[in-house]
C-alpha cells in the first residue's frame, strides 16, 4: 500500500483560555489518511474537529506530537492543501470563475494553464454556464460547489472539509453528499471530511473516525464496506442502521450526547 498522505502521532492541542487557564482540545490523536481515501471524522460540537483540521492545514500550531503531509512535517500554511469551510467564504467582488481561480492568483500560478482546469472542475461540480455570475446570484449549495472547485483547482495533495454542508437545508445537503461522492469518484482526491452528522459520515466515508470530547480523543475507527457508488437508499439498509447505531453508542458512552 502507498504511503499515507497525512500521518499524525501523539497530536495534542492545548488552548489558553481568556481566564488564564488551559483547555485540552485534542488528546494524543494518532491517525493516518490514506492515499485516495475519503476519511470521515464525526463527533459532537466542541470535540476538536475544527482544531484537528486547522492543524493539518497549518493554520494553527500544535502543542504536542507530530504531523506530516506527504512525508514533510506541517509547520505552517502550505500550497498543497485545499480547504472547504462550513461557510462558502466567497469573495463577492469576484465572479464564480475568478473565485475558483483564487489559488492561482494567490500562488502566482500561470493563469492560462489553470483556466482550463478551473472550467473543467466547474463543469464537474455542475456549474457550467455560471462562470460569469457573482456569488450573490447563487444559492448556498451552489456557492459551496464553487468553494469545492476553489479548493481543488491548484491540485492539492489533500482536500480538507470542515462541516462543508452544515449550513445547508436537509434536502440540499443529501444532494451535496451525492455530488461530493461523484466528484470524489471522478477526481480520486484524498479527502478528510468533518461532520457532526453520523449518517453523513457513514454514507460518505471509506472509514469513519469517531471522536469524543473533553478532551478530544479518537474512540474508534470504523471501516465502511459499502460498495460505490452509494445511493441514498443504502441509508435504509439494516447494515447502515447497525453502523450508525454503533457510532451513536460510542458517542453516548463517551458522554458526548447529553
Amino acid at each position: 500500500m502507498a504511503e499515507p498522505v497525512i500521518v499524525c502521532k501523539g497530536l495534542s492541542k492545548i488552548y489558553d483560555t481568556l481566564e488564564g487557564g488551559t483547555v485540552r482540545a485534542l488528546d494524543r490523536i494518532a491517525l493516518e489518511i490514506r492515499e485516495g481515501e475519503l476519511l470521515a471524522v464525526v463527533g459532537p460540537s466542541g470535540c476538536g474537529k475544527s482544531t484537528l483540521l486547522k492543524i493539518f492545514a497549518g493554520l494553527l500550531p500544535k502543542s504536542e506530537g507530530e504531523v506530516s503531509l506527504r512525508g514533510t512535517p506541517v509547520a505552517g500554511p502550505r500550497r498543497d492543501i485545499g480547504v472547504v469551510f462550513q461557510d462558502a467564504v466567497m469573495l463577492p467582488w469576484r465572479t464564480v470563475l475568478d473565485n475558483a481561480m483564487l489559488p492561482a492568483d494567490v500562488q502566482d500560478l500561470d493563469r492560462a494553464a489553470y483556466l482550463p482546469r478551473a472550467l473543467a472542475l466547474l463543469d464537474l461540480v455542475g456549474l457550467k454556464g455560471f462562470e460569469g455570475k457573482y456569488p450573490f446570484e447563487l444559492s448556498g449549495g451552489m456557492q459551496q460547489r464553487v468553494a469545492i472547485t476553489r479548493a481543488l483547482v491548484h491540485d492539492p495533495a489533500v482536500l480538507l472539509m470542515d462541516e462543508p454542508f452544515g449550513a445547508l437545508d436537509a434536502m440540499t445537503r443529501e444532494q451535496m453528499n451525492l455530488e461530493l461522492q461523484r466528484i470524489w469518484l471522478e477526481s480520486r482526491k484524498t479527502v478528510l471530511f468533518i461532520t457532526h452528522s453520523i449518517p453523513e459520515a457513514v454514507f460518505l466515508g471509506d472509514r469513519v473516525v469517531v471522536m469524543t470530547p473533553r478532551p478530544g480523543r479518537i474512540a474508534e475507527v470504523i471501516e465502511v464496506g459499502h460498495p460505490r457508488p452509494r445511493s441514498l437508499e443504502i441509508m435504509a439498509t439494516p447494515e447502515f442502521g447497525r453502523r450508525t447505531a454503533h457510532i451513536r453508542q460510542l458517542l453516548n458512552a463517551g458522554g458526548a450526547i447529553d
Binding site: 486547522k54 492545514a57 497549518g58 493554520l59 505552517g76 500554511p77 502550505r78 500550497r79 492543501i81 485545499g82 480547504v83 469551510f85 461557510d87 467564504v89 469573495l91 467582488w93 483564487l102 489559488p103 492568483d105 494567490v106 500562488q107 491548484h154
Partner: peptide
C-alpha cells in the same frame, strides 16, 4: 477571520491578503 483563514490556507503572502481581500 474566515476570509483570512481561507487566504492563509492557500499560503498567501501578506501582500496578497492585503491586495486580494483586505483592500476590497
Amino acid at each position: 477571520p474566515d476570509k483570512i483563514d481561507l487566504m492563509r490556507s492557500l499560503a498567501a503572502s501578506r501582500w496578497k491578503i492585503f491586495r486580494l481581500v483586505q483592500l476590497p
